[in-house]
């Protein structure tokens, strides 16, 4: 974790060709102070009752998100909706194993989401590698790269387990503990170092929201 008092120099987006560098943000994310008292409680209630998930299937577990939309499981009754763009969504469901190639997209999508943003990691692979524990191209712990609010175990978890996970996330948000965005900003250097350790060809902006 970064504990240095001196702020490091801004990352220069050096993975990008020079003509594109000016197009992207070059300021590190900052922490946002929550509102005070009952106002924040009200906001948190609204956030928890209106979970828009990013419709981005990052692994085989994404197949379990589809049944949630059907009449049998019907996630809409819990205020859960899929959204196609990271700008509008507030929950990122990591669908199982994340290869390094996918991790690049996960990081970019996560950073493009507007805070407060929440992450549900689904399946054993996101927790400790699962059945891909010895794979050369699959990360073992997603929480080294982006902050995770709650995990759903199983390989695969059933849609019921997913709904239970969403209820758990609601409790976390209502308790005011869903501060992944601030955690990411606070430990930004640590997360970036971890990401760059596994993503060998970093050809994307360093700050891309």
């Amino acid at each position: 974790m970064s504990d240095n008092k001196l702020k490091p120099a801004p990352l220069p987006n050096e993975g990008l060709p020079p003509e594109e560098r000016g197009l992207f943000c070059d300021v590190a994310p900052r922490e946002y102070e929550p509102a005070k008292g009952i106002v924040e409680d009200f906001y948190n209630w609204a956030r928890s009752e209106s979970l828009w998930i990013l419709g981005f299937g990052t692994g085989c577990g994404a197949i379990e998100l589809r049944p949630l939309m059907t009449s049998r499981f019907d996630m809409y009754r819990f205020g859960i909706q899929p959204r196609p763009t990271p700008r509008q969504s507030s929950v990122f469901v990591i669908g199982g194993y994340a290869s390094v190639k996918t991790l690049k997209r996960i990081v970019r999508s996560y950073e493009q989401m507007m805070g407060p943003k929440f992450v549900i990691a689904l399946g054993s692979c996101t927790i400790n590698g699962g059945m891909y524990w010895d794979s050369y191209n699959t990360i073992k712990r997603i929480d080294q790269y982006i902050p995770v609010d709650t995990y759903i175990t199983g390989c695969m978890p059933r849609p019921e387990a997913l709904l239970a996970g969403f209820q758990e996330l609601k409790k976390i948000i209502k308790a005011g503990k869903g501060e992944g965005q601030n955690e990411y900003a606070r430990n930004f250097d640590w997360y970036k170092a971890n990401q760059k350790k596994v993503i060998k060809n970093w050809n994307m902006p360093d700050y891309n929201w």
């Binding site: 400790n128 590698g129 794979s135 050369y136 699959t138 073992k140 712990r141």
Partner: peptide, 27 residues
Amino acid sequence: LEGWDQMPMMRRDFDSLAYSDATYTER
């Protein structure tokens, strides 16, 4: 693969487990 800098990984003398242990953090 993107940015792969090791030996071709489907060769059987490539040690996947050792690479995985060295690269990815274990819980």
